[in-house]
Design a protein around this nucleic acid. Structure first.
Lengths: 143, 143
DNA sequence: ATATTATATATTGTTTAAGTATACAATAAT
DNA sequence: ATTATTGTATACTTAAACAATATATAATAT
């Protein structure tokens, strides 16, 4: 039930770009160093974010990546949903056919509600919120 | 980010026992058949549930397992927390030391809040609720 | 004494997560 | 034009975790 590194690193990747919003293209290499994540791995993680038009890119020297929307308009929920490939906690939430019991299984709805509660929370927090949190309390912030 | 089969099967295991509450010890073999889960695997899954005193057992012929508390007093949240070994979505929620960035990482709190939202929902639903749901609407129940 | 249940421990197979490696394409600076 | 620097695309590898299975043992109702 743990989050994958894709959504965790992906969130930090996006947060790093949010922190440097309006500073032109940011190199993945720089983000990799700042966040201490393999640059090669970040290259993979950013692909779906580009396809979904959260991120734009510029090739060549002085190139890099930029957020395609302001940080206020990108929620963590969107990022996680994208990188975890959906908002469900069990396969049968989205694909009832994987289990013959789907039609009558009382636990099925349970997992959907739990996932909903989680994503509602995540969708309520934007990259701008995170940047603000970081600035306000450089360390030891409480929930 | 998917739930493991342990918590999913474990919930169905407990629900099956709730459905047969006050009917004496229930054989794991019977549950395995009804739920279409490997009996051997259920034997493993039930171990932590016994250790946590949600389930009691009787050996020998006519033996089996029984819920140690009424279904009203066992929430899905407790079952899942037990079988997923905690209520966190990332390692650093519980063990800050696994990541050098824990002290200042703004995303850390994020994951804790998301997990909290999810478990609040799960803790609000008991086995008795699930039994009731099943009886009220034998199929096609909506959230 | 026997059949039937649970218990304990070890082992195995499979999948997925996580990360690397290599080759290619675009472009700014010179 | 050439070169260095960035991103892009695809394939590959490794390790861990998940999901079971197998075997042997212990308790107990009949």
């Amino acid at each position: 039930m743990k989050l994958t590194t894709k959504s965790r690193y992906g969130t930090r990747l996006m947060l790093d770009m949010a922190e440097h919003y309006n500073q032109g293209p940011i190199r993945l290499g720089d983000i990799a160093k700042r966040q201490d994540i393999s640059a090669k791995y970040l290259e993979q993680i950013i692909i779906p974010l580009k396809k979904a038009h959260y991120v734009a890119s510029v090739r060549g020297p002085k190139g890099g990546h930029i957020l395609a929307k302001p940080p206020e308009e990108i929620s963590v929920g969107e990022i996680v949903a994208l990188l975890e490939q959906g908002t469900s906690l069990v396969e049968c939430s989205e694909h009832a056919e994987v289990c013959g019991r789907s039609a009558t299984c009382p636990t099925r709805h349970l997992w959907r509600e739990a996932a909903q509660a989680m994503f509602e929370k995540l969708r309520s927090i934007t990259l701008a919120d995170l940047v603000r949190m970081e600035k306000t309390r450089p360390s030891s912030q409480e929930a």
